[in-house]
Design a binder for these strands. Structure first.
Lengths: 338, 338
DNA sequence: TATTGATGCTAAATCGATTTTTCTAATAAT
DNA sequence: ATTATTAGAAAAATCGATTTAGCATCAATA
């Protein structure tokens, strides 16, 4: 009850293995195989249910037909939706996907990339985290197909696709300002990430555009805390030190969740005491009363675009990529909190 | 700038490729390679940074050193934690993991298993969903290493590891009963799953044990609804039709989340109007005021046990598995809701 | 002295495909 | 009539490892 091989099929069809291979790979015409012979081979293959041995094909061709998806963390709805869409899109193109998470561990990110390289993935889809810069640079230098998602490094010439961070924040801010709020806080983290900088820029620009003052005390760059409890305390102190606040804009859903907890501890009520908008949706935001208004990531678009860009690089001829940078608009979802 | 091969290393060390292979695979002694020669080879390998070509090894040995992890849905903290632990445990044993989700699609489950088979994973870790029964049965018949997690099919003789569902519910029920509640509802789903049956059995048994009556109207088998909204309505009607309820036990976190929404709509307050316990933790339950008490799955234990059981099957000699069935205790986490 | 046995390693087969090269008729061109 | 070309397919090389079988050399035994 062993696996059927190409040789077996060839014997069954009364031809040489190479002939079968040509026909199955669509090179029958090119190799001048008679139609009758080709038809016979096809028939035998169908009847026997033969399927090529992926590993053998991989060894010979050097193509694993597998993509590596490297994300920061495997939990969270962002990854879940991303993975799902990428998987189905990749499958349409005949590719499989293997996932890896760096779990916010810079060192692990590097190892992962090397590991995937050994395992011979044909291309990389990466949500870059600080610390992976060197490894990604190397991939690009080795002309490995790469597409970055959600963020990017300005110094690295790799194609990327992400949400329009600047525009997304502006959208939300416009909503708040039109409600008449003038004292709006912005909470971000103390990490140098391009997407966070863009979001902050959106905040600043929106204030300016509506001729509202930018107050330093209204912006919190939350420091990194080992303990969640410490982060919570810093957040709480920030909110309490700004008792005149009308609204808070959280730059990430992690911050938003932390913020909800801080707000609950202080005893403020949304939206009566304070309005809240958060960048990036989360399960909790749909449920947590009164529902948190968010800027939703165009995850499906990001996934589809990323795959398309990667496929372009995986084409036979190294086509110069036309759009190395794509920004997709986010969707502003209004819930009860703002 | 090509990849270093075994042949290259052999040439550099002045020996035959086979000799290098023997040394690298720890068969040096057995093959009577002199220590000096072995040392020389090791040195060359270290200096050159040679790494075996995984695909070639795979083709020759038939071992991919890869495990397939098939889960129902890739989102949710259960999968996230499970995947993380399994990945690290597998890595310790020299294995990689590829993930696949069936997304509650029975048909896709079967395809996935076949796909992984083609890709030659050495073993399977599966959280079985209804509809995958046939495929799993086939794996077992073909003597493929398999371990089921979180659930199992009584008809299939495959090893499995899961939480003690019965005991978990009993623990929670005991807590409620000791608080003096006598009218406790149990909400489960209308799907024939062994773990749900066990949980219901725990509920029934706990009532009996404490000499409390089992009332039919206090048990809801929520039907499958295409629309979330419809499910919500059924849930809401159930709760409203039992106005004397003191507590509700939800059999899954999906039901719990739905329940929270229903409770909020009705306007009940936890724990004053109604106490709540849910089987299986979720991010939301930590945050949603006043915090939902839950039975937490011993995910790390499940993952470690599953890997151990799989490794046993992957050993050279087909060792008869000693513990084909393992039940691990869950942890009862008391929060504000009960 | 011839046979056996251990030592220490190399040569070659193998895994299952793809791809290049080669071979044999049959037909076309000179 | 002889060479050149072409169609059609088989044979062999290849990918990069593992593994089996084999080949010298020297010591020990009969």
């Amino acid at each position: 009850m062993k696996r059927l091989t190409l040789k077996d099929v060839a014997k069954m069809a009364g031809v040489a293995p190479s002939t079968v291979s040509f026909v199955l790979n669509g090179k029958g015409k090119q190799m001048r195989i008679r139609d009758e012979v080709a038809a016979k081979i096809i028939q035998v293959v169908e009847k026997s249910g033969y399927e090529p041995h992926r590993v053998a094909v991989n060894l010979r061709t050097g193509q694993s037909k597998t993509l590596g998806l490297i994300v920061e963390t495997i939990s969270g709805s962002f990854f879940a939706s991303l993975a799902k869409t990428i998987e189905t899109e990749a499958e349409l193109m005949g590719y499989n996907v293997v996932y890896c998470s760096t779990e916010n561990n810079a060192q692990k990110g590097g190892e992962l990339i090397r590991m995937l390289g050994r395992q011979m993935v044909d291309g990389y889809l990466i949500t870059p985290a600080p610390g992976m810069e060197k490894e990604i640079q190397q991939l690009v230098q080795h002309h490995k197909p790469v597409v970055l998602m959600d963020s990017y490094f300005p110094s690295i010439k790799a194609p990327y696709v992400l949400i329009d961070n600047f525009g997304g924040v502006q959208q939300g801010m416009k909503h708040l300002i039109e409600k008449g709020f003038t004292r709006i806080a912005f909470v971000t983290v103390d990490v140098k990430l391009i997407q966070l900088e863009e979001r902050l820029r959106g905040y600043v620009s929106a204030l300016k555009e509506h001729k509202l003052p930018l107050r330093k005390k209204h912006v919190l760059h939350l420091k990194y805390h080992k303990l969640r409890e410490d982060a919570l305390r810093e957040m709480q102190e920030f909110i309490e030190s700004n008792p005149d606040l009308e609204a808070i804009f959280f730059a990430t859903n992690y911050l938003g969740i932390l913020g909800l907890e801080a707000i609950a501890r202080i005893g403020l009520r949304m939206p009566d005491d304070v309005s809240v908008i958060c960048f990036d949706d989360h399960d909790i935001f749909r449920l947590y009363p009164p529902g948190i208004s968010v800027i939703e990531q165009p995850i499906e678009g990001i996934a589809k675009t990323a795959i398309a860009m990667l496929m372009q690089q995986l084409g036979k001829k190294p086509v110069p990529i036309k759009n190395p940078a794509v920004e997709l608009p986010g969707r502003f979802i209004v819930r009860g909190s703002a």
